[in-house]
Protein backbone atom coordinates (compact mmCIF):
# COMPACT_ATOMS: atom_id res chain seq x y z
CA UNK A 1 0.00 0.00 0.00
CA UNK A 2 2.76 2.41 1.01
CA UNK A 3 4.64 1.48 -2.15
CA UNK A 4 1.60 2.22 -4.31
CA UNK A 5 1.15 5.60 -2.63
CA UNK A 6 4.85 6.37 -3.06
CA UNK A 7 4.64 5.52 -6.76
CA UNK A 8 1.55 7.64 -7.19
CA UNK A 9 3.26 10.51 -5.42
CA UNK A 10 6.38 10.15 -7.54
CA UNK A 11 4.22 10.15 -10.66
CA UNK A 12 2.48 13.35 -9.59
CA UNK A 13 5.75 15.06 -8.72
CA UNK A 14 7.12 14.15 -12.14
CA UNK A 15 3.99 15.42 -13.86
CA UNK A 16 4.09 18.73 -11.95
CA UNK A 17 7.81 19.09 -12.74
CA UNK A 18 7.10 18.53 -16.44
CA UNK A 19 4.29 21.06 -16.36
CA UNK A 20 6.55 23.62 -14.69
CA UNK A 21 9.32 23.06 -17.22
CA UNK A 22 6.89 23.29 -20.13
CA UNK A 23 5.49 26.56 -18.73
CA UNK A 24 8.98 28.02 -18.39
CA UNK A 25 9.75 26.94 -21.95
CA UNK A 26 6.51 28.54 -23.14
CA UNK A 27 7.53 31.83 -21.52
CA UNK A 28 10.91 31.70 -23.27
CA UNK A 29 9.18 30.91 -26.58
CA UNK A 30 6.80 33.86 -26.18
CA UNK A 31 9.70 36.16 -25.25
CA UNK A 32 11.13 35.62 -28.73
CA UNK A 33 7.97 36.45 -30.68
CA UNK A 34 9.02 40.07 -31.29
CA UNK A 35 12.14 38.87 -33.12
CA UNK A 36 9.94 37.22 -35.76
CA UNK A 37 8.94 40.70 -36.92
CA UNK A 38 12.59 41.32 -37.78
CA UNK A 39 13.02 37.91 -39.41
CA UNK A 40 9.68 37.09 -41.06
CA UNK A 41 11.38 34.53 -43.31
CA UNK A 42 11.73 32.17 -40.34
CA UNK A 43 7.96 32.26 -39.83
CA UNK A 44 7.12 31.90 -43.51
CA UNK A 45 9.31 28.78 -43.79
CA UNK A 46 7.57 27.21 -40.82
CA UNK A 47 4.11 28.21 -42.02
CA UNK A 48 4.89 26.26 -45.17
CA UNK A 49 6.21 23.26 -43.26
CA UNK A 50 3.54 23.18 -40.54
CA UNK A 51 0.57 24.59 -42.47
CA UNK A 52 0.84 24.11 -46.21
CA UNK A 53 2.17 20.56 -45.98
CA UNK A 54 -0.81 19.63 -43.77
CA UNK A 55 -3.39 21.00 -46.22
CA UNK A 56 -3.85 17.79 -48.21
CA UNK A 57 -4.79 15.54 -45.29
CA UNK A 58 -7.07 18.25 -43.85
CA UNK A 59 -8.79 18.87 -47.19
CA UNK A 60 -9.43 15.21 -47.95
CA UNK A 61 -10.59 14.49 -44.39
CA UNK A 62 -12.87 17.53 -44.34
CA UNK A 63 -14.49 16.50 -47.61
CA UNK A 64 -15.19 12.95 -46.47
CA UNK A 65 -16.32 13.89 -42.97
CA UNK A 66 -18.83 16.33 -44.53
CA UNK A 67 -20.06 13.64 -46.94
CA UNK A 68 -20.55 11.06 -44.17
CA UNK A 69 -22.22 13.65 -41.95
CA UNK A 70 -24.66 14.51 -44.70
CA UNK A 71 -25.41 10.86 -45.38
CA UNK A 72 -26.06 9.98 -41.74
CA UNK A 73 -27.96 13.22 -41.10
CA UNK A 74 -30.25 12.63 -44.07
CA UNK A 75 -31.30 9.17 -42.86
CA UNK A 76 -32.20 10.54 -39.41
CA UNK A 77 -33.78 13.82 -40.53
CA UNK A 78 -35.83 12.14 -43.27
CA UNK A 79 -37.56 10.05 -40.57
CA UNK A 80 -39.03 13.32 -39.27
CA UNK A 81 -39.50 14.87 -42.71
CA UNK A 82 -36.88 17.47 -41.76
CA UNK A 83 -34.43 17.02 -44.68
CA UNK A 84 -34.49 20.76 -45.27
CA UNK A 85 -32.48 21.21 -42.07
CA UNK A 86 -29.67 19.01 -43.37
CA UNK A 87 -27.47 21.95 -44.43
CA UNK A 88 -27.78 23.59 -41.00
CA UNK A 89 -27.00 20.34 -39.24
CA UNK A 90 -23.88 19.69 -41.34
CA UNK A 91 -22.61 23.27 -41.04
CA UNK A 92 -23.27 23.56 -37.30
CA UNK A 93 -21.64 20.21 -36.54
CA UNK A 94 -18.57 21.15 -38.54
CA UNK A 95 -18.20 24.70 -37.27
CA UNK A 96 -18.88 23.97 -33.62
CA UNK A 97 -17.20 20.61 -33.12
CA UNK A 98 -15.85 18.51 -35.93
CA UNK A 99 -13.91 21.24 -37.73
CA UNK A 100 -11.74 22.33 -34.77
CA UNK A 101 -11.55 18.90 -33.07
CA UNK A 102 -10.80 16.64 -36.05
CA UNK A 103 -8.42 19.23 -37.52
CA UNK A 104 -6.56 19.39 -34.21
CA UNK A 105 -6.32 15.60 -34.00
CA UNK A 106 -5.03 15.39 -37.57
CA UNK A 107 -2.73 18.37 -36.95
CA UNK A 108 -1.23 16.62 -33.92
CA UNK A 109 -0.65 13.46 -35.95
CA UNK A 110 0.80 15.14 -39.03
CA UNK A 111 2.43 18.45 -38.03
CA UNK A 112 2.86 17.94 -34.25
CA UNK A 113 4.70 14.64 -34.60
CA UNK A 114 6.89 16.11 -37.37
CA UNK A 115 7.76 19.10 -35.16
CA UNK A 116 8.72 16.87 -32.23
CA UNK A 117 10.79 14.54 -34.40
CA UNK A 118 12.58 17.45 -36.10
CA UNK A 119 13.44 19.25 -32.84
CA UNK A 120 14.34 15.97 -31.11
CA UNK A 121 16.70 14.99 -33.92
CA UNK A 122 18.26 18.45 -33.90
CA UNK A 123 18.93 17.89 -30.21
CA UNK A 124 20.27 14.36 -30.74
CA UNK A 125 22.65 15.52 -33.47
CA UNK A 126 23.88 18.43 -31.30
CA UNK A 127 22.49 21.04 -33.69
CA UNK A 128 20.76 22.85 -30.82
CA UNK A 129 23.97 22.80 -28.75
CA UNK A 130 25.81 24.02 -31.83
CA UNK A 131 23.46 26.99 -32.10
CA UNK A 132 23.96 27.79 -28.42
CA UNK A 133 27.72 27.78 -28.86
CA UNK A 134 27.32 30.10 -31.87
CA UNK A 135 25.59 32.49 -29.45
CA UNK A 136 22.23 31.84 -31.11
CA UNK A 137 19.34 31.02 -28.77
CA UNK A 138 17.79 27.79 -30.10
CA UNK A 139 14.49 28.56 -28.36
CA UNK A 140 14.12 31.85 -30.25
CA UNK A 141 15.51 30.58 -33.54
CA UNK A 142 14.03 27.08 -33.69
CA UNK A 143 11.09 26.82 -31.29
CA UNK A 144 9.42 30.24 -31.48
CA UNK A 145 8.86 30.27 -35.28
CA UNK A 146 7.46 26.73 -35.15
CA UNK A 147 5.16 27.58 -32.25
CA UNK A 148 3.80 30.74 -33.86
CA UNK A 149 3.38 28.97 -37.21
CA UNK A 150 1.34 26.21 -35.55
CA UNK A 151 -0.81 28.75 -33.72
CA UNK A 152 -1.54 30.61 -36.97
CA UNK A 153 -1.95 27.55 -39.17
CA UNK A 154 -4.41 25.64 -36.97
CA UNK A 155 -7.47 27.99 -37.27
CA UNK A 156 -6.84 28.35 -41.01
CA UNK A 157 -6.71 24.59 -41.42
CA UNK A 158 -9.87 24.22 -39.31
CA UNK A 159 -11.63 26.77 -41.53
CA UNK A 160 -10.54 24.83 -44.61
CA UNK A 161 -11.76 21.59 -43.04
CA UNK A 162 -15.19 23.06 -42.27
CA UNK A 163 -15.54 24.73 -45.68
CA UNK A 164 -14.69 21.55 -47.57
CA UNK A 165 -16.89 19.57 -45.17
CA UNK A 166 -19.87 21.79 -46.07
CA UNK A 167 -19.09 21.29 -49.77
CA UNK A 168 -18.81 17.52 -49.29
CA UNK A 169 -22.09 17.52 -47.39
CA UNK A 170 -23.73 19.60 -50.14
CA UNK A 171 -22.50 17.18 -52.81
CA UNK A 172 -24.09 14.21 -51.00
CA UNK A 173 -27.21 16.00 -49.69
CA UNK A 174 -28.11 18.07 -52.73
CA UNK A 175 -26.31 16.19 -55.51
CA UNK A 176 -27.02 12.59 -54.51
CA UNK A 177 -29.92 12.56 -52.04
CA UNK A 178 -32.06 15.25 -53.66
CA UNK A 179 -32.32 17.91 -50.94
CA UNK A 180 -33.29 21.26 -52.45
CA UNK A 181 -30.27 23.40 -53.29
CA UNK A 182 -31.87 26.72 -52.32
CA UNK A 183 -33.18 25.36 -49.01
CA UNK A 184 -29.73 23.98 -48.17
CA UNK A 185 -28.02 27.38 -48.46
CA UNK A 186 -30.86 29.62 -47.23
CA UNK A 187 -31.44 27.57 -44.08
CA UNK A 188 -27.70 27.56 -43.42
CA UNK A 189 -27.43 31.35 -43.84
CA UNK A 190 -30.44 31.93 -41.63
CA UNK A 191 -29.56 29.60 -38.78
CA UNK A 192 -25.78 29.69 -38.51
CA UNK A 193 -24.90 32.34 -35.96
CA UNK A 194 -21.75 34.44 -36.14
CA UNK A 195 -21.03 34.30 -32.39
CA UNK A 196 -22.57 31.03 -31.36
CA UNK A 197 -21.18 28.93 -34.18
CA UNK A 198 -18.42 30.68 -36.11
CA UNK A 199 -16.59 32.59 -33.37
CA UNK A 200 -16.74 29.74 -30.89
CA UNK A 201 -15.30 27.38 -33.50
CA UNK A 202 -12.48 29.81 -34.22
CA UNK A 203 -11.73 30.21 -30.49
CA UNK A 204 -11.60 26.42 -30.12
CA UNK A 205 -9.21 26.04 -33.02
CA UNK A 206 -6.96 28.79 -31.63
CA UNK A 207 -6.84 27.06 -28.24
CA UNK A 208 -6.18 23.66 -29.83
CA UNK A 209 -3.46 25.12 -32.07
CA UNK A 210 -1.78 26.72 -29.06
CA UNK A 211 -1.89 23.55 -26.97
CA UNK A 212 -0.94 21.06 -29.72
CA UNK A 213 2.05 23.12 -30.89
CA UNK A 214 3.17 23.79 -27.31
CA UNK A 215 3.09 20.06 -26.54
CA UNK A 216 4.94 19.25 -29.79
CA UNK A 217 7.80 21.73 -29.31
CA UNK A 218 8.15 20.89 -25.60
CA UNK A 219 8.31 17.15 -26.24
CA UNK A 220 10.93 17.67 -28.95
CA UNK A 221 13.04 20.02 -26.84
CA UNK A 222 12.71 17.80 -23.77
CA UNK A 223 13.32 14.49 -25.56
CA UNK A 224 16.10 12.12 -24.60
CA UNK A 225 18.66 12.64 -27.40
CA UNK A 226 18.65 9.06 -28.72
CA UNK A 227 16.64 7.39 -31.47
CA UNK A 228 14.46 5.63 -28.88
CA UNK A 229 14.05 8.90 -26.96
CA UNK A 230 12.90 10.82 -30.04
CA UNK A 231 10.53 8.00 -30.95
CA UNK A 232 8.97 8.07 -27.46
CA UNK A 233 8.68 11.86 -27.55
CA UNK A 234 6.90 11.71 -30.91
CA UNK A 235 4.42 9.17 -29.58
CA UNK A 236 3.85 11.29 -26.46
CA UNK A 237 3.11 14.32 -28.65
CA UNK A 238 0.31 12.54 -30.46
CA UNK A 239 -1.15 10.94 -27.31
CA UNK A 240 -0.94 14.03 -25.09
CA UNK A 241 -2.22 16.35 -27.82
CA UNK A 242 -5.18 14.12 -28.63
CA UNK A 243 -6.16 13.79 -24.98
CA UNK A 244 -5.70 17.51 -24.38
CA UNK A 245 -7.85 18.39 -27.40
CA UNK A 246 -10.69 16.07 -26.38
CA UNK A 247 -10.60 17.21 -22.76
CA UNK A 248 -10.40 20.89 -23.62
CA UNK A 249 -13.18 20.50 -26.17
CA UNK A 250 -15.52 19.32 -23.43
CA UNK A 251 -14.54 22.20 -21.14
CA UNK A 252 -14.82 24.82 -23.89
CA UNK A 253 -18.14 23.44 -25.12
CA UNK A 254 -19.53 23.52 -21.57
CA UNK A 255 -18.42 27.14 -21.17
CA UNK A 256 -19.54 28.32 -24.63
CA UNK A 257 -22.95 26.67 -24.96
CA UNK A 258 -24.42 27.06 -21.48
Amino acid sequence: MTEVLARLGAGWILAVRHLGRSLLLLLRILEGVDELLLRPRLLVEQLFSVGVLTVLIIAVSGLFVGMVLSLQGYYILSQFAAESALGVMVAASLLRELGPVVTALLFAGRAGSALTAEIGLMKATEQLSGLEMMAVDPVRRVLTPRFVAGFIAMPLLAALFSALGVLGGWFVGVGLLGVDDGTWWVQMQARIDWNEDLSNGVIKSLVFGFVCTWIAVFQGYNSVPTSAGVSRATTRTVVHSSLAVLGLDFVLTALMFK
Binding site: G130, M133, A135
Partner: peptide, 14 residues
Protein backbone atom coordinates in the same frame (compact mmCIF):
# COMPACT_ATOMS: atom_id res chain seq x y z
CA UNK B 1 30.25 32.76 -26.77
CA UNK B 2 30.65 34.90 -29.87
CA UNK B 3 34.34 34.93 -28.99
CA UNK B 4 34.43 31.14 -28.52
CA UNK B 5 34.20 28.51 -31.22
CA UNK B 6 33.36 24.90 -30.61
CA UNK B 7 33.87 21.92 -32.85
CA UNK B 8 31.44 19.18 -31.83
CA UNK B 9 32.27 15.52 -32.21
CA UNK B 10 29.42 15.10 -34.70
CA UNK B 11 30.13 18.40 -36.46
CA UNK B 12 26.63 19.60 -35.45
CA UNK B 13 26.07 21.11 -38.90
CA UNK B 14 22.56 22.34 -39.65
Amino acid sequence: RMRMGMLFQSGALL
